[in-house]
Design a protein around this nucleic acid. Structure first.
Lengths: 338, 338
DNA sequence: GCCTGGCACTCTGCGCGTGCGAGTGCCAGC
DNA sequence: GCTGGCACTCGCACGCGCAGAGTGCCAGGC
C-alpha cells in the first residue's frame, strides 16, 4: 500500500505532466507543490512509485511520466470530477437549445464537446433499442409499392420501400395503418414483434402476403437501426497530440473512421456514470495511446446512447469528465423536451 | 509561349516530383525521361520555366518543384484524365451496388473515393434543389400537432413537427394530404411554392391558419435543406501529406470540419466536367496547400450534388481525376436505379 | 526510522564546424 | 541552339563537446 504522501506525489506528477507535457523531475515537483519535503525524499518516493509501475522514465536521467496504471489510480482515487462553472453551464444550455432537429442536436453536441475539451468528440445517435414508436406511416407509391415510415420518440425517422407481391388497395392500406398504429404507438421497439405477430390474420387472404412483407420490413428496420450511427468532430485537436505526429495520429484517425470500432468502444462502457478507459485498456490497438471518456445520455432517466471524447492519455481527466458529464446531462434535457 | 520541349520538361518535373516527393534536378530528369537532350539544355529550359513562374527551387542549389501555376498548366494542357481499368470499374460497381439506402450509398462512396485516391474524400448528399417531391405525408401527433414528412425522388426523407393554432380534424387532414400530393407529387422543388399558393382558399375558414402553417413549414423545409449535408472520409490519408505535419495538417482538418467552407468549395466548381482547384486557387486559407478535385453527379443527366477529394497539391492529377469521374458516374447510375 | 544535503554519474539536446554531394549558372566550342 | 566542362553555392549529415537537468546513493541529523 502506498503512503499518503506517495499518492500526493503521484497526483502532483500527473497534474504537472498534463500541464507541461514534459517529464517532471523531483526538484520541479517540490517547487510547484507544497509537499513539505525535500527533492531527495521525493526521489525516494518516485523510485517506489516506479517500482510499483505507476510512473516511468523515458530515459535514464530524465523526469518521470505517469504510466497507464498511474493514470488509472489518479482517476480512481486521486481526482474528482471538476464541475462546470455556472457561466459554462449556461453557455452549454444556450448552445444546445438552438437546435432545430435531431441531426442538429447531435451536430451541436459534437461541436460543443470538442470545443469544451479541446479533444475529439464522439456522439452516438440516440439508439432505437430503448426508444418507443411514435408513429408508423404507410404510403402508396404505386399500386404494388409502398413506403413505410417509422417515427420514433427521439424524433428519428426511418423509411423503407416495400415491394408487394400483389396490388394493395387504399382501403386495406388505411386499415393496416390504423391497426398497426393502435398496436405499436408508444410501445418499445423490443415489444413490437410480439404485438404485431397475429396481424396478418385480421386481413383478407389476398392481402396477407403484403401485410406480412410490411411487417417483416418494419421489424428489419427496428433491428437494422441498432447498427447505430455516430458523429465525430474536433479531429483538428489531434494535432495537439504529441511531437511524433505521423506515428501517433494516423492509427487514431483510422480508428475514428471505423465506426464499428467506436461503437464497440462506447458500448463496452457499462458504468452508469462517466467511464474512463486509459491507453492499453482500449482493445483497439490504434487507440492504445489514447484515453476515452464516455457516458450514457438519454431523454428520460434511462440512457439511450453514449457520447464521449477521445484524447491523449495525458489529458485533464477531471475537466474532461466534468465537461462530458455536463454535456450529456443537457443533451438529455433537450431530447426530453422535444 | 513555351516551346514543346519545355512543356515536356515541365510535365516530367511534375511527374517525378509527384512520384518522389523530392525536388527534381536536371540530371535525374534526363536519366528518367528520354528527352533527347543533355542536362545542360534542360537546365536552360528549367531556368526559363522558373522565370515564367511554373517551377521554383526551395533553396539555391536544390532541384525544382512545380508551383501552383505549374500544376495548373500541367492539368490544363499536359495531362489527360487517366481512365480506370476494367477490373477497377467492376470493383467500383460491385461495391456501390451493395448499398441499402441513401445514407449507405453516400457512406460507401466516401470510403471508395478515399481508398481509390488515397486522399480525403468529400461527398455531398444529393441536393434537394433539383429533386422532385415523391410524396408529402401528414400525420396527426396530437389534436393540434402535426408531423409533416417529405419524401424526395432521391430517397431522402425530411420531417418537421408543426404546431397548429387550432385543432385540425382528421377529415381536414386527409383532405389536405390529398390536395397537397395531387399538386406537388413529382414536381420540382422550385415549382412547389407557386403550386400551393392558393391552397388555403379551398379550406374552411377555421382551418386556413393551420393549412398556411403547414405550407410555410413545407416551403421552409425545401429551402433549409439546401443547406446541404456532406460526408467526409479518409482523413487518415492526411498523414501522408508532408514532413512538417502540425502546420500543414491542422488547417486542413479545421477546414474539413467547417462544412460551410467545403460546401462553398464544391459549389464554386461550375464546370460540367471534373474541376481542379490548385493551392491558392482555393479561397479558404487553410486549403492553400491542397488541391481539390471535384465533379457533379446525379441520378439523371443532371447533376444534383458534388463529390470530390482533397489532397496535397503534389498529387497524381490524372489518376485522381479518373477516379473521381468514374465514381461519380457509377453513383449516378445507382441513384437512378433506386 | 525517516528525512535531508551533497556528490558523482548519466543522458539528452544544442550549437558548431566540417566535408560531401547534388545541383546550378555560365561560358566557350561545335 | 545544343553540349560538355567548370567553378560555385548550399543544404545536410556527421562528429564533437558542453551545459543542464535529473537521478541514485550515501552519510549524517532529527
Amino acid at each position: 500500500m502506498l503512503s499518503e504522501r506517495r499518492l500526493q506525489v503521484l497526483r502532483a506528477i500527473v497534474q504537472d505532466y498534463v500541464g507541461t507535457e514534459e517529464p517532471v523531475g523531483s526538484k520541479a515537483l517540490t517547487e510547484r507543490h507544497s509537499l513539505g519535503v525535500s527533492p531527495a525524499t521525493v526521489r525516494n518516493d518516485m523510485a517506489a512509485l516506479e517500482d510499483e509501475g505507476y510512473i516511468a522514465q523515458p530515459h535514464t536521467s530524465a523526469g518521470r511520466i505517469p504510466t497507464d496504471k498511474g493514470y488509472r489510480l489518479f482517476v480512481d482515487k486521486l481526482a474528482g470530477v471538476k464541475p462546470m462553472t455556472g457561466p459554462e453551464r449556461r453557455a452549454i444550455q444556450n448552445f444546445l437549445e438552438g437546435a432545430v432537429d435531431l441531426d442538429d442536436v447531435v451536430a451541436r453536441t459534437v461541436r460543443l464537446l470538442a470545443q469544451l475539451t479541446r479533444q475529439v468528440a464522439v456522439v452516438q445517435y440516440p439508439s432505437l433499442t430503448r426508444s418507443t414508436v411514435r408513429h408508423v406511416e404507410l404510403l402508396s407509391l404505386a399500386p404494388a409499392r409502398l413506403m413505410l415510415v417509422l417515427i420514433t420518440d427521439t424524433g428519428r425517422v426511418e423509411q423503407r420501400v416495400v415491394d408487394c407481391a400483389a396490388p394493395f388497395g387504399d382501403a386495406s392500406l388505411a386499415d393496416l395503418r390504423a391497426r398497426l398504429n393502435s398496436r405499436v404507438a408508444n410501445r418499445r421497439f423490443a415489444d413490437v414483434p410480439s404485438l404485431v405477430e397475429d396481424l396478418p390474420e385480421a386481413f383478407e387472404h389476398e392481402d396477407r402476403g403484403t401485410v406480412s412483407t410490411v411487417l417483416s420490413t418494419l421489424l428489419e428496420t427496428l433491428v437494422e437501426e441498432n447498427e447505430e450511427r455516430l458523429m465525430i468532430g474536433g479531429t483538428a485537436n489531434l494535432t495537439r497530440f504529441g511531437h511524433d505526429f505521423p506515428l501517433t495520429i494516423r492509427p487514431v484517425l483510422e480508428a475514428l473512421e471505423e465506426q464499428v470500432v467506436l461503437l464497440k468502444l462506447l458500448g463496452e462502457a457499462q458504468d452508469p456514470g462517466v467511464t474512463v478507459r486509459i491507453g492499453h485498456e482500449n482493445a483497439h490497438a490504434g487507440l492504445n495511446s489514447t484515453s476515452v471518456v464516455s457516458v450514457g445520455y438519454g431523454s428520460g432517466g434511462e440512457a439511450v446512447a453514449k457520447l464521449g471524447v477521445v484524447g491523449p492519455t495525458r489529458m485533464d481527466y477531471p475537466g474532461t469528465m466534468g465537461a462530458v458529464r455536463a454535456v450529456a446531462r443537457y443533451v438529455g434535457q433537450i431530447l426530453a423536451e422535444s
